[in-house]
Design a protein around this nucleic acid. Sequence first.
DNA 1: TTCCGAACAGAACATATGTGCCGTGAGGCC
DNA 2: GGCCTCACGGCACATATGTTCTGTTCGGAA
Lengths: 214, 214
Amino acid sequence: MAADDLSSKQRAILRFLEEFIAEHDYPPSIRDIQNGCDISSTSVVDYNLKRLEEKGYIRRDREVSRAIELLNGQGERRRRTVAVPLLGKIAAGRPIPTPPETPTPGAFDETVELTEEQTRGRSNVFALRVEGTSMIDALINDGDIVVLEPTSTCDDGEMVAVWLRDENETTLKKLYREGERVRLQPMNATMAPLYTRADNVEVQGRVVTAIRSL
Amino acid sequence: MAADDLSSKQRAILRFLEEFIAEHDYPPSIRDIQNGCDISSTSVVDYNLKRLEEKGYIRRDREVSRAIELLNGQGERRRRTVAVPLLGKIAAGRPIPTPPETPTPGAFDETVELTEEQTRGRSNVFALRVEGTSMIDALINDGDIVVLEPTSTCDDGEMVAVWLRDENETTLKKLYREGERVRLQPMNATMAPLYTRADNVEVQGRVVTAIRSL
DNA sequence: TTCCGAACAGAACATATGTGCCGTGAGGCC
DNA sequence: GGCCTCACGGCACATATGTTCTGTTCGGAA
């Protein structure tokens, strides 16, 4: 299912587009393509770009410079990563240094590049590095990174980061409401659950995914 | 060490840049930024872009339209994903449909977008979807995706995909050489190791990382 | 107060860049 | 041959877009 419906010139343009974007992070102009592919005229580039657009390999915004977006050949968008702030470390009973608030771009020591596939299109997610083996039963080990979606509510049994007011610390547990109190269940069979008053816990985020370090 | 050295306007511009690029796949023009951030003059945008460039948050090519490249605040480049072919499924005792050979771009049913962080800069990696819980001790569960690096050799104890000539099937195990024979150890304490002749096994790839589905 | 630099306004300017128009040549088809 | 379409060349044109120049405003230092 390769690109058999493309001329060699169109394949060259597609290849050049990929290389150029990989190198510059912005698309080439028509004249960049012209030079890069040894094409004699801008109108030829334009002509072939129109064909490529018809066939679903690229998308163009008219009248806008360098407005070429690479598609996958079926009209779907490509790539796309998000810089997710790595806010700190977390384990059973360890505090998160910075409570997750409104994330400011570029305002963190570290970020993790995630694909939309991994964030499931959610924005505003943040990441925490896991310390210790307290979540081993959830297949999350020391050094792994968990990605959380900010939320103040959750269903029973969800894996959430909660802030304990009295203890002034944050931890990652499964949350179960049991009448007046809340059971915080570690994801490690060798560790006992923690019980506390319902008004002592504040949900900060729900685990969206985990990233193995290995 | 966050971006305390940025003005609110500069932060707004940075944020707008991320959003715009995420939406269009090409950077905004100065006037796009002007409108998007409610800035009164193009020269103000230009002024702040210069500051952002000085501080290592972006890179610009002079004289070129929309030539803004997002950096991470330390002058390093951002993003960049690789489309890794998802070759098939694997489990204890199940075959890989296609033996990993020279990957042809776009010639697969599925691909997984991975960041360079995940592939550790390695190229030619491929991915397999895990079936079953035979690797649960390695924190790899049913439905997860393992990323492998093609190799024909490995050290003892490494997690590798091996092809068993006689049985004509491929499996994912830890490999230990024991004299004339080879011990293939599943990563599940409830499963027994498999012993076979050394010349019956052919290493096909080494596990680089695993991706949790959740 | 005066002076100076950072940040901003506004507009003109230069050029980077997409588009349109006209023409050519090679095939295919009747 | 006559007629069509596809792919291409060349070039002028409109405008999209970065740059620059001249002021203005506002604090803080001297």
